[in-house]
Design a protein around this nucleic acid. Structure first.
Lengths: 351, 351
DNA sequence: TTGTACGCGTTATCAA
DNA sequence: TTGATAACGCGTACAA
């Protein structure tokens, strides 16, 4: 006398128990269409009796042609991708525009051939978060599915809505400030150049082989002011990485050591400052440090970082709105955001 | 002469073009079943000609009864939930066990009635991340769907696999250390007590009304050593919140001010230390600080925090494994993890 | 090795 | 206001 398995009841079962047709029962749950109070009550009763959870999402998706899911394609391991405050802000913005509208966000860590199969994940649209590397391949796989695609800071691609940032121009403005302060020996601490994310000195070969769009753009902006600037590419956007890069750049002969460092993120910049302090190099008197992002650095440093503030949440919102517009049948256009230079206490005239 | 719309081709269309039946074409894409090289090639060709992206995920899900999606139910706004390093570590662990197996993670921010509809999201199983509040209601909605449920640090619930932590016992061990060091005036800085997340002094009313399981357990552990300990509940797990709480607790008369503070997270503890330093209170000589979590505090503080190290990634992995086991037809059992006290440089004998 | 038949659980359309 | 019918796009017995 074993308890019978209790399989998921179907709409048909509920309808049968209520003594109505499946289509009528469907109306009760979807709310679309006129149903008499009496039958509505009977159907609800039957549903309760069977412990019916409502229409099966998969069947509904198939029938309606919509899943209510938006894919968010990230390049990294999951935790890694979301350790970047900028991506978190983006997620917040996306959430405001999408999750609050009832969409779920399907996070798809995708690095090249590994990871989730982009062509098999159920979704109505996709947002590409940090996929500048190998972007083309993932876009290709997704475009075949005829779903709207939104890419954050990626090279322009036909049929893909871009949410862009003035990475080169903004960095150029920051570099110009340093130049005006008299700096000549300037070094770079960049974001990872590619999927490998290995820390190491910038070389023409490594830069050429790099696939990270944002990093490359910011390098370009810096070089437009300091043409031959060298530096180090970090293995991630973190205080620890900035610290390591800072030690490497600042450990040498004081006469030749850089008087300013352009870091490609605020976390990297904070790490550089930490390294400088450890080495007894005063910021900003002996070393100016420029960041990028404009995030809050609670507790990490007491300096007010000079940095390029980017509208990260706005970028997420714009991406979310683009998705909604596309799903509504519209043809959203790309958006370009601009960063603003916020001068803090980490930049000063060259010593 | 407008370009005709290019609708998503179906498997049937591909089959037709290739001159085979739909079922044969299906075999080509699923790989299951023997197909001659010749027909396989013809089907692939037809698919290429039509720019076919592969079987429709939704239809496939309906037919197979699996979506390949695991829901991750979070309590907060998205960015907020992932700003907690512990949740990030959990996500990493989950990713290792699930994303690497091809599952996508569907992030569902759910706070009470608002947010995504849990009964409408397509998923094969769900992991409840920080849903101790209002847990019962979300579990109810999900259990009707007959999908496996895994809850991280939640009150035991029938039919839900628990991934638990010794929050009370671990805190008790930390508190015991403080007691042995001679501390008597001890204050708490707790995680948010409920969904409201308002910062404020602990009162019996607020504690009773609180719904956050982890916070309550850790309070319980602390009180088992210091029965009447009061304190402040933070509005989140961040350095800034810890800082604010620290200022409030330490600003008073030195003769009555606490000599030790038990913070319920490392970020809160770091904030408390910052506040103490601002007030000229030396850590650990004049104030001992205890954290919880055992995360890396790169750059935030130079102290080595005395804290309770919890195996966060392991928790995520365990949750992922439980999901896989349940999906494979097994009956995974709950797992209880233990934290270990790591004594650093932020605790010392009471002054 | 290939094709036929059927159903997965819904919802849209239309007629009653 | 309700019900019958037909898809949605695919996978899987089973038969050929």
């Amino acid at each position: 006398m074993s308890e019978p398995a209790n399989p998921r009841p179907t709409l048909a079962a509920v309808a049968a128990l209520a003594g109505v047709s499946a289509s009528t029962a469907s109306l009760v749950f979807s709310g679309a269409g006129p149903v008499s109070e009496a039958t509505r009550a009977r159907v609800r009763e039957a549903a309760a009796a069977l412990d019916y959870a409502g229409p099966d999402p998969t069947a509904r998706s198939l029938r309606r042609g919509r899943t209510g899911v938006i894919g968010v394609v990230t390049e990294d391991r999951l935790g890694e991708a979301f350790r970047d405050p900028i991506n978190l802000a983006l997620l917040d913005g996306l959430g405001e525009e999408l999750a609050d509208e009832g969409y779920g966000l399907l996070v798809l860590p995708w690095s090249g051939p590994a990871g989730v199969d982009l062509s098999a994940a159920p979704m109505d649209a996709a947002v590409l978060l940090g996929c500048s590397a190998d972007l083309a391949r993932s876009v290709e796989a997704l475009q075949r599915r005829r779903i709207p695609l939104v890419a954050i800071e990626a090279p322009a691609l036909p049929g893909v809505v871009g949410i862009d940032l003035d990475n080169a121009e903004a960095t150029r403005r920051g570099a110009t400030l340093l130049r005006e302060l008299g700096h000549e020996r300037v070094a770079l601490v960049t974001l990872p150049l590619d999927l490998d994310r290995t820390r190491g000195p910038l070389t023409p070969e490594r830069e050429a082989a790099g696939s990270a769009f944002t990093a490359a753009e910011r390098i370009r902006g810096a070089r437009s002011v300091f043409p031959d600037t060298a530096g180090i590419s970090a293995a991630g956007s973190s205080v620890a990485e900035g610290h390591a890069a800072g030690l490497a750049l600042l450990g040498g002969d004081p006469a030749h050591r850089p008087t300013a460092i352009i870091a490609q993120s605020d976390l990297l910049a904070a790490g550089v400052i930490l390294a400088a302090e450890e080495l007894g190099i005063a910021v900003p008197d002996q070393l100016s440090v420029l960041g990028f992002d404009g995030i809050r650095l609670d507790g990490i440093t007491t300096h007010r970082l000079t940095t390029l503030v980017q509208p990260a949440i706005e970028k997420g919102r714009a991406a979310g709105r683009a998705v909604r517009e596309a799903l509504a049948g519209g043809a959203p256009s790309s958006v370009a955001f601009v960063s603003s230079l916020r001068v803090g206490t980490t930049t000063a005239p060259a010593p």
